[in-house]
Amino acid sequence: MTIASVERASILSPVRARRRRSAIPGFGLTLGLSITALCIVVLIPLSAIAIRAAGMGVSAFAAAAFSARALHAYGLSFVASLIGASVNAVFGLLTAWALVRYRFPGRAILNALVDLPFALPTAVAGVALAGLYSSNGWIGGALAPLGIKTAYNQTGVVIALTFVGLPFVVRTVEPVLRDLAIDVEEASASLGADRLQTFARVILPALAPAWITGFTLAFARAVGEYGSVIFIAGNMPYKTEIAPLLITIELEQFDYGSASAIAAVMLAVAFAMLLAINLIQTWARRFS
């Protein structure tokens, strides 16, 4: 899909220079309905978390939101998401390069498959990855004799978070790579640069804004991920427990306060990510 490319397209689209009253009717009605829906579906429910967490008092909030167990869970979600997004940055760039620059049999299938994490339910991804990477799965079984364990540990968390973020880097880099003029590379070559120099000095800087955007989107998606992780993680407190899982554990004990405190921290992270993505895109616009 194209959350990424859509986001890019609409944010990068030219701002209309002239402001004037539109002759097209329905503005008040459609804007009113949109804002009402946004408030009912998104803003009011999310504010309930902030209000609940704010009402706890500082010490109770800190005890719940920054307990050792919670800190460990944020750390795991953060580091595993970072590694997953980095893996995607490398392999996503390669995949985008193969899709744009080369023609080979199966290219259309590869192209369609890249979007699978957007279309496959996360719980299905979870059981599938657990089945594949556990010691009796095809890949997990093959790596087990080498002493590499790929499920029910932190590696498993990274694998799941790599899966959910896979399309982002490919889909943000792809359109920029497609638009990159070949003659710039040819000019670079004619001036004596070898292929590697051209890649590092000419192509990579042009791709950088989109590449970083893709990385950030993959990271943001991974931090909040739940369904695909819990089956392969093992879910051991202080070891393989991710932050969203901790919220559901608090909820199962009807501890709505603690759940809200952890959720408030995650919500703050989500806002920070959204801000970061917008800033990166403002910065990227200067290059386009």
Binding site: P45, G224, T248, S260, A270
Partner: peptide, 18 residues
């Protein structure tokens, strides 16, 4: 765009609180 970056679990919790 906000729902894209909010964890689904956090979204669920917010409805429980309302």
């Amino acid at each position: 765009d906000l729902p894209f970056s909010v964890s689904p679990v956090v979204a669920g919790l917010s409805y429980v609180l309302v």
